[in-house]
Design a binder for these strands. Structure first.
Lengths: 179, 179
DNA sequence: CTATTTACGTCAACTATATTGACATAAATC
DNA sequence: GATTTATGTCAATATAGTTGACGTAAATAG
């Protein structure tokens, strides 16, 4: 039984491709990023199951907890989903008592979103899981590599988005650095 | 207009949470990881739209191209989805002529998956986009931080999974390091 | 050689997350 | 008073995933 036909041909195109793009290492990084993200979100997924919530709920709860008083528009801007999509999960979080909405004081059309104590607790538990992974990673890493992680991740963000992300982080920090 | 009621209360729980988990920095990393991954997959998403494919197709095509001759079982193991879910997208890739399946030579029950030339080209184009982001990041980063990225990402993977990931990478490398 | 296990395919129903498009309402602003 | 803005909502659709049940051909154990 010889090698199935096509394998040799494939090896050629693969070799050409490697030459064309010039990266075996970058490809490894692509895959490592995929696997790392998969496991990273897996932690939270397991906890969320106990509440009947999914990733969409997690994201909403996270950002509401991180920046209490967030408006719908601001949340849509962060999540980059449609208001219809947001509304489904937000309604569930409101009904289940994890988030509450109050009319804006300066502009009463706005709904300012706040975590309830119950919501803040869940958000903190979820964040603790994910933070724990990062802290463990930092422990495993040589000290010289530790500072590099946040620089690396920030550099991975679209350059046009970095200002907004920076603003979000500053805003969260100003809000009190919630969980 | 005074501060809406509840804000002060929230600040307290937030402060407690910060003390309890001890991390404002880890939280920032959590969010940076979220934003970085969002933009990272966004590149490929835009290209995939031209073909009527989604992320699920991308993942299948990527791993088939990276490890030609992959079996269904091996693919399921990497992707961690059900065979029913895989089958839907795989069928489309087969019908559209981006992937082809041949009966295994040693075990004829197995279907060995190979990219077609067309499939290899698309896989390479997708990989080129994502590799390009990594290379750009490496250029932006101080030299000392460059080696840290892959160490960091690898450390982010579940410790129980690392061996398998390492095996996958070795396998892909042995297969010719296909783009 | 028969029995079982393995590798895979498939039908069906369902869930979660997202989309587009249209329309409604109340509050702010011109 | 007219318009714009912030938000809610109804409906249809797409994508990606699930569980469960059943089928089939090939490998393997007895």
């Amino acid at each position: 039984m010889s090698e199935p036909p096509g394998v040799a041909a494939w090896r050629n195109t693969a070799a050409e491709a490697a030459v064309a793009t010039g990266d075996g290492d970058a490809l490894e990084l692509v895959e490592l990023f995929f696997f790392a993200y998969r496991d990273f979100v897996g932690d939270a997924d397991r906890l969320l199951e106990n509440y009947g919530f999914g990733r969409a709920h997690h994201r909403v709860l996270h950002f509401v907890n991180r920046r209490p008083g967030l408006t719908i528009a601001a949340l849509l801007d962060i999540l980059r989903i449609t208001k219809q999509s947001l509304n489904r999960v937000l309604k569930q979080l409101l009904e289940a008592g994890f988030v509450e909405a109050r009319a804006g004081v300066v502009d009463r059309r706005q709904r300012l979103l706040y975590p309830t104590p119950k919501g803040a607790t869940l958000a903190r538990d979820l964040a603790a899981l994910q933070s724990a992974r990062f802290r463990k990673v930092m422990d495993e890493l040589p000290p010289a590599a530790r500072g590099a992680a946040s620089k690396f991740l920030f550099a991975m963000i679209d350059s046009g988005e970095r200002e907004r992300v920076r603003a979000h982080l500053a805003c969260a920090k100003a809000a009190g650095g919630a969980t």
